[in-house]
């Protein structure tokens, strides 16, 4: 069984999306592992990784998502394993998957160093499990080049089984290639693909936001898989907000306090896709009923408006099985832009 270890120097470069796209183009049967989980899903007293759940549900994988990770927290993994048992466990997992799959895709921690103390960082996993490493870099042009050249100059090892690099979320590819062609040509390893930036994949859904904020959803629980393209803090008067150009956009989410009935009414009249109520203040029942009637998700959180705006600003949109359009787009982008044949060879 071939093993593909997908890692990145930095967090949030789109490893999971890329794996999803690669898996979509893989002709055979594959299994997925994320030894050091970081996107927790707690359901019915069990914990698993969101990415493992996504891969499992999209590709009908044989094993449960809870089996695809060793843990999420250093203390938990330390409590259950030591260096040697981690290695034997990873090997055992690989052997188990080997029986019915011909490819094992392993997603490493959020950045290259993550999990080092537990021997669960990308390079340690490569050593423990064997397999071919693929590095993903992404973001603005300069960040991509920093990562590529840093890896090339300081980390790349000739004897290491390294397949190459995939550049993800690259804005204006022709311009990028023009600007950095010399540096790219000088790299000691191949570039397996350059995937263009797709704005559609950068918009969180209302569900992403609700989960990130640990919000209680008060209304329209079935209407959470809608993209959010604009986020407004409703701190001004309803009159003022109605005059804002951004307020006229579709697919907007409003952050306001539960005692701002005027703002909530303005938001539902302006067809917003969700309302986040801060400071745990419930609006009057008639307002909740009205929002429910309009099928707009109303979410209540403990934090104040500043903290919530900050959290949303920092959040990374996650792909869910409920977003088929996004999933199709990812598969298409990978298929068109990554030399997958080099990976499967």
């Amino acid at each position: 069984m071939k093993k593909l270890i997908v890692s990145s120097l930095e967090r949030d470069v789109g490893k999971t999306s890329l794996i999803l796209g690669l898996a979509g183009s893989y002709p055979g049967k594959f299994a997925y592992l994320k030894p050091f989980g970081d996107r927790l899903v707690y359901h019915e007293k069990k914990l698993w990784d969101h990415d493992a759940q996504l891969m499992g549900s999209l590709f009908d994988l044989q094993h449960s998502p809870a089996e695809m990770s060793l843990g999420f927290d250093h203390s938990k993994i330390k409590f259950q394993y030591d260096h040697s048992t981690i290695q034997t466990t990873l090997k055992a997992m690989a052997e188990k998957y080997q029986q019915s799959n011909d490819l094992l895709i392993v997603e490493t921690g959020r950045d290259l160093a993550r999990g080092t103390a537990l021997h669960l960082d990308a390079l340690s996993i490569c050593k423990s499990m064997g397999g071919t490493q693929v590095l993903v870099v992404g973001g603005i042009h300069d960040r991509i080049m920093d990562d590529l050249l840093f890896f090339d100059r300081h980390l790349y090892l000739q004897d290491h089984n390294f397949a190459g690099v995939i550049l993800n979320k690259v804005k204006d590819i022709p311009e990028f290639l023009k600007e950095f062609h010399k540096e790219l040509d000088s790299l000691k390893f191949p570039i397996l693909g350059i995937i263009p930036y797709a704005a559609e994949l950068s918009s969180p859904t209302v569900r992403n936001i609700a989960e990130t904020l640990s919000a209680k959803v008060l209304t329209a629980e079935t209407n959470l898989d809608v993209d959010v393209r604009e986020i407004l803090v409703g701190a001004m008067s309803a009159d003022a907000v109605l005059r804002l150009e951004k307020f006229k956009h579709r697919e907007k989410l409003i952050i306001t306090s539960g005692d701002r009935s005027d703002m909530i009414l303005a938001a539902i009249n302006a067809e917003c896709v969700g309302i986040v109520l801060t400071n745990n203040i419930l609006p009057p029942p008639n307002i909740i009923a009205l929002v429910s009637e309009k099928n707009v998700p109303l979410m209540i959180v403990q934090n104040d408006t500043f903290q919530i705006a900050k959290k949303i600003d920092m959040m990374v949109p996650l792909i869910n099985a409920e977003n088929p359009d996004k999933i199709d787009l990812i598969k298409k982008l990978v298929k068109e832009n990554v030399k997958t044949e080099l990976l499967w060879a």
Partner: peptide, 12 residues
Amino acid sequence: EVMDAYQTIIHN
């Protein structure tokens, strides 16, 4: 379940 709950609470 206690281990999973422990990690979840810390994360939350």
